[in-house]
């Protein structure tokens, strides 16, 4: 039946087009290996039983990306000086086209980001996913949590309204109650004796340069470890990856309603 035929014109055409379309990818792969990297990332195996709770990490990442994009746009119109800050915020929120949406998403996105970090941390705790060999990733996570809260604290001052100003006065003074370093820390945060333009500049540079750079570096490390180590299976799952399976006599486990899949489990399920 199978008779080898000359490829038709259309077939030749199709193959040529395919080669032309993949050429840029081949070019990139040959020079960087990036295509292979992305393929590895996409087609790597994850445990068969991962569930919705395990989307919280990438949801946190999404919230952070929303903050990054809206933050960059806000920085184009915001003016970090006591004289102009408030009016530039008013201008963004009430006059710029879609300015309210960008500022609103940044303002509310901050809360969503922080809530998601806590929920994600809760999921990791519930799954016991901080255990060997993921201790380091838990520590990186705690640092991310601290940096996220610091970003919230420094961003709160920027609108330079009454809420912002007095919350920061009290917040900075609270840092001042620490033993030994307290007064120095408070002095540093204020950039002087009073909260003024210098404080605003300092908070602005921390909020839009230093802290985001720290968060981005830590997220990169965090995700590297997630890909290297893999995510854990839900610990209660019957087919949890790494689960220790002990052969037991089938009479012990097999009930009327639920036959045992492959013996009972004992001990840890890594």
């Amino acid at each position: 039946m199978a008779i080898r035929r000359e490829p038709s014109r259309a077939q030749v055409r199709r193959e040529q087009m395919l080669a032309a379309a993949t050429y840029p990818l081949d070019w990139l792969e040959e020079r960087s290996g990036l295509v292979g990297g992305v393929k590895y990332f996409l087609f790597r195996k994850v445990p068969s039983d991962t569930n919705w709770m395990q989307t919280l990490g990438s949801a946190t990442l999404t919230a952070f990306l929303v903050q990054a994009v809206t933050g960059v746009i806000l920085a184009m119109y915001y003016k970090p000086s006591p004289h102009d800050a408030y009016s530039s915020i008013q201008n963004i929120t009430d006059h710029l086209t879609m300015g309210w949406l960008v500022r609103g998403m940044h303002k509310w996105g901050a809360s969503v980001f922080i809530i998601l970090m806590f929920l994600h941390m809760g999921r990791v705790f519930l799954f016991g996913a901080y255990k060997y060999p993921r201790e380091l990733n838990w520590i990186i996570g705690v640092l991310l949590l601290v940096l996220g809260l610091t970003a919230g604290f420094t961003g709160y001052l920027l609108p330079w309204d009454q809420t912002a100003y007095w919350a920061s006065v009290v917040g900075i003074n609270l840092n001042g109650t620490a033993p030994f370093v307290g007064p120095w820390l408070a002095q540093f945060l204020r950039s002087g004796q009073e909260i003024n333009g210098n404080t605003l500049s300092l908070f602005y540079s921390l909020h839009m340069l230093v802290i985001p750079a720290g968060i981005i570096s830590l997220i990169t490390l965090h995700l590297y470890l997630v890909i290297r180590l893999g995510v854990t299976s839900p610990p209660w799952s019957r087919e949890a990856a790494g689960r220790e399976v002990v052969e037991e006599p089938s009479t012990v486990r097999t009930g009327l309603t639920r036959p045992a899949p492959h013996g009972g489990a004992s001990g840890g399920s890594d």
């Binding site: 990332f41 996409l42 087609f43 195996k45 994850v46 990856a241």
Partner: peptide, 9 residues
């Protein structure tokens, strides 16, 4: 286990 029984990301 992940290698043998896992699903593709």
């Amino acid at each position: 286990d992940v290698k043998e029984r896992g699903k593709s990301f």
